[in-house]
Design a protein around this nucleic acid. Sequence first.
DNA 1: ACAATAAATGCACTTCCGTTGCACTAAGAA
DNA 2: TTCTTAGTGCAACGGAAGTGCATTTATTGT
Lengths: 138, 138
Amino acid sequence: MTEIEKTLENKSVRPTAMRILIYKYMAEKDIAVALTDIENAFAKADRTTLYRTLKTFEEKGIVHQIDDGTGISKYALCEPGCNCELDQDLHLHFHCGNCDETVCLTEHKIPHINLPEGYIAEDANLVIKGICEKCSGQ
Amino acid sequence: MTEIEKTLENKSVRPTAMRILIYKYMAEKDIAVALTDIENAFAKADRTTLYRTLKTFEEKGIVHQIDDGTGISKYALCEPGCNCELDQDLHLHFHCGNCDETVCLTEHKIPHINLPEGYIAEDANLVIKGICEKCSGQ
DNA sequence: ACAATAAATGCACTTCCGTTGCACTAAGAA
DNA sequence: TTCTTAGTGCAACGGAAGTGCATTTATTGT
């Protein structure tokens, strides 16, 4: 039994062939992936399957969904200590306007914001847009 | 000539009847509005016209577009000193999960974030999700 | 091993929002 | 008035998310 299979089982997700492949695909990339990306990578599989796999992964805390402002939902694997389902790991995301890639900056947490009277914060999303490391180095 | 007409002309937007109505509608609301909201408010007008009006307003710095994470673009009038087109007025937005309304918190600016080496920030978007003033008071 | 049951996958279709092309109309300039 | 430009309306497209249902694959109990 591989590491990936163990990881999936730990999160009570049955490690089917498709799921292992998708997990592997995401693990190899260091950037957030969209459903379309996975679709292109696995042309043989049906979009619904990939869609529902991501949803399952999300529910079980294997990946977290990222809204980077492009209008396209992206997903990234949760880090070992990622508590995104508890809204306790509010790391920020960086979207590069050049290569259109989105990365998690897991080391950078969203600073605490003082809200006006009456407002109750439950979640936060911070996306920085600009030029990423790879593109600025060109 | 009304205040609104003056405002529009100052931003070099011809104050047509439709545009004045839309501006008035947005001014009366203290929350960000979606195209659909305007559509419902002006059932007689065509969606394209409303859409293009918002786009014109946005280009000319009359409104700014807001991505509140719902997947639906919203728009709010720019405040007198709002320099959103210059990315110098990075105020944050609050989205209420109860009433689904989004407000600009113009007094609250996005704090400066130190990015890793190589990353160049050009813009930022911070959305706090939770319960708004109106809904928490219930 | 077998049937019974549940989960996963694939196909077709729908909905929603944003967007564009083109024709028509109204408004400002010569 | 005529010319020109800007604004409006109609129709249609396209991408992405999401749903219902049939089929296949895997797991459980006997």
